[in-house]
Design a protein around this nucleic acid. Sequence first.
RNA 1: GGCGGCGUAGCCAAGUGGCUAAGGCAGAGGAUUGCAAAUCCUCGAUCCCCCGGUUCGAAUCCGGGCGCCGCCUCCA
Length: 468
Amino acid sequence: MLRIYDTQTGGKKEFVPVNEGKVGMYFCGMTVQSEPHVGHMRVAVVSDIFRRYLRYKGYDVTLVINFTDIDDKIIEKARERGVDYQKIAQENIDKFMEFLAFLGAEKADYYPRATAHIDDIVAFVERLVENGVAYESGGDVYFEVGKWPGYGKLSKRRLEDLVAGASERVELDDRKRNPEDFVLWKAAKEGEPSWDSPWGKGRPGWHIECSAMTTKYLGEHFDIHGGGTELIFPHHENEIAQTEAATGKPYVNHWVHHGLVNLVGEKMSKSTGHFKTMAEISKQFSPDVVRFYLLSTHYRSEIEFSDERLAEAATAVERFENLFRTLERLVGREGEGVVAAQASPAVVDARKRFFDAMDDDLNTAQAIGHLFDVVRVINQEVGSGADEAVLRSDRAVLRELSEVLGLLEGIGTAGEEVPPEVLELVRVRTEAREARNWALADETRDRITALGYSVEDTSDGPVARKDK
RNA sequence: GGCGGCGUAGCCAAGUGGCUAAGGCAGAGGAUUGCAAAUCCUCGAUCCCCCGGUUCGAAUCCGGGCGCCGCCUCCA
């Protein structure tokens, strides 16, 4: 039984889809005001792992990730650079997609943008006005929080606390009836992008786009809505208010919030400039390493991002790579002579524990622990000369589990080309070793190393491969 | 101030009432190797921030501390 956490109820509960056999998932992507950083990468990996696993469980999954492509910062940047705001947005969207591909995350089914859904947004706001929970004021439209009794149920905040807090911090806008009200539609300011609406020219507030787009793509009541914990309030709280006030139905069954990514102990954020971009990361580490690293901590926990942590992950990932390589040497390429489940009992057992962990709120950290058990068992079997049929089945399990995590998909399935000059040196070294000329053998190995390759003496003779 | 989360071996990280507290990285020793590499084996918390309490039994529940972090209307 698959259990998934829900922020609103504050615990794990059985996953029961709204529509049998199908899953609707929406993750808040990014406000494309600057280039994506490692925090956004976590959304990409978390949404991807949810989709992979639900699909593994047999569901037909629809994943939607939005882009907020209009906000104050985007407008400001466009003005600074003297370009259209859409150019800023598009550049950052392109970068986001690029790194999604880098991470091996499959594309979402829809990537809706706020500015492409103005009609839907306006219709949604109108619905709220008609329902008496929103009001127009000076060209703005506000959601009147006090008119909707469920407000605060996600973030566990009480309205009076909000009012008290707000009075200290927020300058009272005289267009608002109450300080806790939030904007659904903003009247246009001079020189800003704007769209026509029943309240005059303007642009959407930050929260309303998600309500309009989720209901459009996934319906008024769907399964999973994700994002970072910092979005719980106000963004998701407001989204619930807007949507449920409009539809009169429960909105989302599982609110899934992933922990933030910290850099040197401090939250990464666009606003402080304290972040590491994906571009920097992709130069230093492979997609498998980054994925492995992010998945080795449970998605709801905070995670600290540092080069040291990534380097450790790289060492761990190498063990998987080495095993796939060893298996290829011993029993050939994957897919050749695949035998049905003859995997060894220890592997089968670890496989079961792997899926138990995944069923428990996608506990990838625990699942990875069991995956290492599989690796160790297979290595033991390799060392003791296990039957090829068993090794093939073992490998099939290993492949199955790593695919659930989206790891190592390209490993062991394609031979690595080694250039002729390296192969020649390997031959020279082998001859030297046969002649017990250790000095020449070691010197030749040094030359191979200098070319960026290493050579290992396996039971099947020397094997050369490119260094990382 | 309000709300929420966290504190487990040198580091990272599972485990949230009951077998010997997963796994990874680092380290030590051993096997294997001409030497390496790869791999395997062995070794590490008598204990889970501290102090009380509940319980036959708690890292896990409750109370009180201490420390760290997030949110409180830009932010994945």
